[in-house]
């Protein structure tokens, strides 16, 4: 079953003004339950607009958005509930922390849902463990934490709402390799244990290749590629033409293929090493 479905979506900023921008054009999209979907595209391709449409921050100019089977704009008054089902972690989410303690900050979402104290507490604890926030940080001020820790607290704050689909805009931006693996690995674990669908928006081809089941490539407000990572990265000339990057390893494989060593579609180092090893 599709947990998110977009039908005939168009989105136009500043409609009927000289600043009109047609950000999304005729988008049809289904995100299946329990998948990690990656959305790739460069700045201005419409990625962020797409994210804000799914959780009802923006209302489509045309078309319908379904989350968990129901049209989210059927009852505009209940749009807040959609945001609990489609949890969004914005870019650089550490800048949204505000509460006095880490616990209170993570509890903000569940409190807005109107849950009981006990329920809130258990959700906060569960979410922090998924997001790798250690329990002894709970009573600290979020502003005293390191950058990576803050990012994980912000992530826990959204996971604590127990959404049907978790959407992340550049979750690893600005983090070093260790921090990236922490966040993305944590997400994979969360997705496996809870079965929640995850949508990740990113520029980093390497990260997407490593962690996603399915990749969508967005350019100029349209979905132009859609498939498993090997299928998408095999079209690497198209990606480069769009000003996007392919993983370095995919470039190596392409260069090898030109020299008569065909490895097939390669996008992770481990896989490439295995394939080459078969040859000697």
């Amino acid at each position: 079953m599709a947990v998110v479905e977009l039908r005939g979506i168009n989105y136009i900023y500043n409609k009927n003004t000289p600043y009109e921008v047609h950000a999304l054009k005729d988008i049809d999209l289904e995100v299946k339950e329990g998948e990690i979907t990656g959305i790739i595209g460069h700045t201005g391709s419409g990625k962020s607009t797409l994210v804000q449409l799914i959780n009802g921050i923006l209302k489509p100019t045309e078309g319908q958005v379904f989350v968990d089977g129901s049209d989210i704009w059927k009852e505009p008054k209940k749009i807040r509930e959609v945001r609990f089902k489609a949890g969004v972690v914005m870019q650089y989410p550490e800048y949204q922390l505000f509460a006095e303690t880490v616990f209170d900050d993570i509890a903000f979402g569940p409190k807005n849902m109107g849950l009981s104290e006990e329920e809130i507490k258990s959700r906060v604890i569960a979410a922090s463990s998924f997001a790798n926030v250690s329990p002894d940080l709970m009573n600290r001020s979020p502003f005293d934490l390191s950058g990576g820790q803050k990012r994980r607290v912000a992530l826990a704050g959204v996971i604590a709402m127990d959404p049907k689909v978790l959407i992340l805009d550049e979750p690893a931006a600005g983090l070093d390799p260790g921090g990236r693996a922490d966040i993305l690995g944590g997400l994979k674990k969360y997705q496996r244990e809870k079965g929640t669908s995850v949508i990740i928006v990113s520029h980093s081809m390497e990260d997407m290749a490593n962690w996603c089941d399915r990749i969508l490539v967005l350019a100029d407000g349209k979905i132009i590629l859609d498939g498993t990572p090997d299928k998408v990265f095999s079209r690497f000339n198209d990606l480069i033409g769009l000003g996007l990057d392919v993983p370095q390893i995919t470039r190596v494989a392409a260069a090898l293929a030109r020299r008569g060593v065909d490895l097939g579609d390669v996008y992770t180092v481990g896989y490439a090493a295995d394939k080459i090893s078969e040859l000697f």
């Binding site: 993983p247 260069a255 481990g270 090893s277």
Partner: peptide, 28 residues
């Protein structure tokens, strides 16, 4: 990634240098 690949191959017994960063040269 080029270094990582070459490192893995070297460990498995292929005689390659590690300090090649350009994908073309790496393939070569």
């Amino acid at each position: 990634q080029t270094t990582e690949l070459l490192y893995k191959l070297k460990q498995r017994g292929l005689d390659v240098p590690l300090d090649v960063f350009d994908p073309e040269k790496c393939a070569k």
